[in-house]
Amino acid sequence: MAEPTFEDNLAQLEKIVAQLEQGDVPLEQALAQFKTGVQLSQKLETTLKDAEQAVTKEVTDDGSVKAFDPDHA
């Protein structure tokens, strides 16, 4: 199975939020969900916070990739 995407994890988190707020999940299950939810939220937040500012790339005609330099375009 492919690694879940950011959106998959976010959807999972949203589902957990909705279920926990609804309050009809058995307590044991709710605790497990809560744990998963907190882990997911931390993972998602870390993913976002740790993402460094991406440098724009340029694909040249010969297929190679270089950093895009607007001053020498």
């Binding site: 993402a51 460094e52 500012q53 991406a54 724009t56 340029e58 694909v59 990739v65 895009f68 375009a73």
Partner: peptide, 10 residues
């Protein structure tokens, strides 16, 4: 959204 990788195809 600074993490987004842009790739220019001139």
């Amino acid at each position: 959204y600074p993490g987004l990788q842009l790739t220019l195809y001139p």
